Computed example of a mutant assay.
Amino acid sequence: MKLVSWNVNGLRACVNKGFNDYFAAAGADVFCVQETKLQEGQIRLELGGEYRQYWNYAHKKGYSGTAVFTRLEPLSAAYGIEGMEETEGRVITLEFESFYLVNAYSPNARRDLSRLAFRLEWEDRFLEHLLRLDAVKPVIVCGDLNVAHREIDLKNAKANIGNSGFTDEERGRMTRLLESGFIDSFRHLNPDTEGVYSWWSYMPKVRERNIGWRIDYFLVSGRLASSIAGASVDCQIMGSDHCPVVLELDLPATVVPATKKEE
């Protein structure tokens, strides 16, 4: 089973920069996008009849938003997270027979950290959401989580300590999430690999010089660790300031065996 996640930073713009070509070439069973920046009816994607489309739009025009395109038919779809008003289109949860998929676009704390308190509250509610799901069946979490967890996950770590996306608070929340039973699939297979990033500033020559951050993830419930067959970052794909991240699970795409939750 192949899953792809990509912060497209405006889906309409990304479609004009090769999105459809990449989508077709990827051949994913599930393809998740973040920061769609559009409202219902503003785009019509021709993805093929086998893909079902699920959208969560922000109330504010041209802002945030998530979507999932899946060949697998979910049992149910839910939007947002319990305990927080859903106006920014940040979370889609799809329930499949033997796992949950959660597509998320975590809030940015902003350069001046004026939204850090909101970000931390969101993280608390998000973790509660994931743990509720994980108590029922395994969870696959993907998206732009807006944090570089470790110094290895960004180019200039020392210079960015305390900056948005690399504050102690945000990194601590990611540590807590992983310690709650989830696995960073890329680091699981590539524990010491440096220089692999998923986001670069639009400043001149930054991407060419690979001065980036790895802030886009696939996390999975710990009991799916042995099923991780591949976890990669398609750094060469343009069209956004982010690039796609990919997860391959050694499980059938149509029938995923249930896994009993460990006590």
Rank of each mutant, 00 (worst) to 15 (best):
F96Q: 06
A109D: 10
E128R: 14
V136A: 15
L133W: 02
N103E: 09
D124K: 12
V102Q: 03
F96I: 05
R132W: 03
I92Q: 02
H129T: 14
A104N: 08
I140P: 00
L116F: 01
F118E: 13
V136K: 11
G143F: 04
H129P: 01
L116V: 12
T93E: 12
D144K: 06
L154H: 08
K137S: 08
V141I: 15
F126P: 00
P138G: 11
V91L: 04
L94F: 01
W122L: 08
E97I: 11
Y105Q: 03
L133C: 11
R115S: 14
L94P: 03
I92V: 08
S98F: 10
E128I: 09
V141N: 07
E97K: 09
D124S: 13
R150V: 14
L101P: 02
D134F: 09
K155E: 15
F118G: 07
R90H: 04
R132Y: 07
N146R: 10
V91G: 01
E151M: 10
K137P: 01
V139Y: 06
N103M: 06
D112E: 07
S106I: 10
I152Y: 06
L145W: 10
A157C: 12
S114M: 03
I140F: 10
V139I: 03
D124P: 08
L154W: 06
R115I: 09
R132K: 10
R115G: 09
N156Q: 15
F96M: 11
A157I: 13
R125L: 15
L113G: 00
